[in-house]
Design a protein around this nucleic acid. Structure first.
Length: 311
DNA sequence: CAAATTTGACCTAG
DNA sequence: CTAGGTCAAATTTG
């Protein structure tokens, strides 16, 4: 099933990538080692956004690019997509039925997205483990987490972590289901690379833990697959509303430009092939609020932007 | 002792 | 019937 982008969607995507890069470019600084890593991550994220936006724009301008799929885009739909931070209707399905014990697995319509990461515990929310399951076809168990504020604040966000490999650098598939409605994010989402030393987790008791903690008792973290800058690859069946998260997406922050060959399939068929030579750079860097100044020499981007919007 | 985790049972879509 | 998502009692941890 091909995902043919519409013009409005492409325009908005380009605009969003444009604004994103424009606003965060000043943060691309190369100071100490920590700053360098953070900057590399941010740069990678921004580059991904730009590439995806441009690809989409090109697809609209020349539908053959999209239709053919092309060698470089593989046989699968790797049409990129932005996750929206504003899909508030995360709670699909009533809570009443969910109160029942052993509620059946989520519905297809539920909001979910998947990331492949080597740091599955690192996002900006506080999680409580509620289950573990041996999954058919996988050597590893799947762990189930819910938001720690599920009962306090009725937050329906959950996530599943499944290890994908057992080598020296194990990767984990993390599936996020439903968006947080608890407003329980830590300071981390305000984090910029300059603040690295101050990164901390926000524990349930209000205390904080430094980033260096090796043993993570809870699923606490600082770096999220933030929709605004995440490397998100759209599932081929989910191309409807460009800036809306309403189906299964694939988010792959640690593999710039990788192709997902399967989505949310219970991990057994999940694959990610890097096409750009990037190695895992660890976690993504969340951009803070936009800065006012802009150091971009962005004539080319302006040109593209204007041509898309004002022609 | 409260909070978090573990784990077997329960539930239900396919 | 099976697989997988969730519950909740038991256990562990801090």
């Amino acid at each position: 099933m091909d995902c043919v982008p519409d013009r409005d969607g492409a325009m908005r995507m380009v605009a969003q990538a444009y604004e994103l890069i424009k606003s965060h470019q000043p943060r691309l600084r190369f100071g100490d080692e920590q700053q360098l890593l953070a900057t590399a991550n941010l740069a990678q994220s921004l580059l991904n956004e730009a590439l995806r936006a441009l690809h989409l724009a090109l697809s609209v301008m020349n539908p053959e690019i999209s239709a053919a799929g092309g060698a470089e885009s593989s046989s699968r739909s790797n049409m990129p997509h932005l996750l929206s931070p504003c899909s508030a209707e995360g709670n699909v399905g009533g809570i009443s039925s969910q109160q029942r014990k052993g509620k059946k697995r989520r519905l297809n319509e539920e909001i979910s997205w998947v990331i492949l990461t080597d740091a599955p515990h690192e996002d900006r929310y506080v999680w409580r483990k509620y289950g573990e399951k041996k999954i058919n076809g996988s050597h590893f168990t799947r762990n189930y987490f819910r938001c720690s504020y599920k009962y306090d604040r009725g937050c329906q966000a959950t996530k599943q972590i499944q290890q994908q490999s057992s080598n020296d650098h194990p990767m984990f598939q993390v599936t996020y289901i439903n968006e947080h409605t608890c407003n329980c994010t830590t300071n981390a989402n305000k984090y910029i690379q300059n603040d690295l030393p101050e990164l901390s987790y926000c524990n349930t008791d209000g205390t904080t833990s430094q980033m260096g903690d090796t043993v993570i008792k809870q699923e606490q973290g600082l770096l999220s697959p933030l929709p605004e800058v995440s490397t998100v690859f759209l599932d081929s069946m989910a191309c409807q509303e460009p800036f809306r998260l309403s189906h299964h997406y694939t988010l792959c922050p640690n593999h710039a430009g990788c192709h997902m060959t399967s989505i949310d399939d219970g991990a057994s068929n999940f694959a990610c092939e890097s096409i750009d030579g990037y190695k895992d750079l660890g976690q993504m860097v969340l951009p803070p609020e936009p800065l006012e100044d802009n150091h971009f020499n962005d004539a080319d981007l302006d040109l593209l932007y204007n041509s898309l919007f004002y022609n």
